[in-house]
């Protein structure tokens, strides 16, 4: 029987689409960052990944139901600890740079850049999705955060296509972080 949270993929798809119309919707995505962390800190393990991750459900839907996945095994190095924690570290560094950028716009050192940065390198003009009715730093964070979300969606789509539907889950920085929190909380007992 389907439960309400089995439809969270709709939220995830709507979120990605909304960024094409109004970049300020990007702020809503913070829910997908804060909720998994809070749940794992509260001792719920990876329940967010296991049940509530709309993005995972979306990859499952596209890969399994719509058969867009080639269902091959993921290369072993991607599931290795050095890669997963390395990708998490890289992700955190890029996230910090984005936050710093927001700060520079906040204190007036830098002008608002109405662009999305794809895969941390490709700058795409995105000015049509911003009407300019909020403080520039609020918009800067939205552009930066949406860049992170769009980049990770693209990476997830690529690995969904070449490997199994939810291959993104193997190296998802949020998943690595919540698993690390769970390990710190409960250790490696019961092995």
């Amino acid at each position: 029987m389907k439960r309400w949270y089995d439809y969270l993929w709709i939220f995830s798809a709507a979120y990605m689409i909304s960024g094409f119309f109004n970049i300020l919707f990007a702020w809503v995505g913070l829910i997908c960052f804060i909720t998994p962390l809070l749940l794992s800190i509260m001792g719920k393990g990876k329940i967010y990944c296991n049940s509530y991750c709309g993005r995972g459900q979306l990859f499952e839907l596209l890969g399994s139901r719509l058969k867009l996945s080639s269902n091959r095994n993921i290369p072993a190095f991607i599931r290795s600890k050095w890669f997963r924690y390395g990708f998490l570290a890289f992700f955190m560094i890029m996230f910090s740079i984005m936050i710093f950028s927001t700060y520079l716009v906040f204190n007036g050192t830098k002008n608002l850049e109405e662009a999305i940065t794809l895969l941390w390198t490709i700058k795409l003009p995105w000015n049509w999705a911003y009407t300019g009715k909020v403080s520039p730093w609020i918009a800067q964070f939205a552009f930066g955060f949406y860049s992170v979300m769009l980049t990770s969606t693209i990476l997830g789509m690529i690995t969904m296509f070449f490997f199994k539907p939810r291959s993104w889950c193997v190296y998802c920085p949020m998943g690595t972080m919540t698993q690390a929190i769970s390990i710190l909380k409960y250790g490696r007992k019961m092995r």
């Binding site: 393990g45 690595t176 929190i181 769970s182 909380k185 019961m190």
Partner: peptide
């Protein structure tokens, strides 16, 4: 292989006998 399991829960969801559980978000 619990050392490399990412605890994503796909296996638990797919198991027809509910034989798989995710141990505290670890494996």
């Amino acid at each position: 292989n619990t050392a490399e399991c990412v605890a994503c829960g796909v296996c638990a969801k797919t198991c027809p006998r509910q034989a798989i559980t995710i141990f505290h978000g670890i494996y």
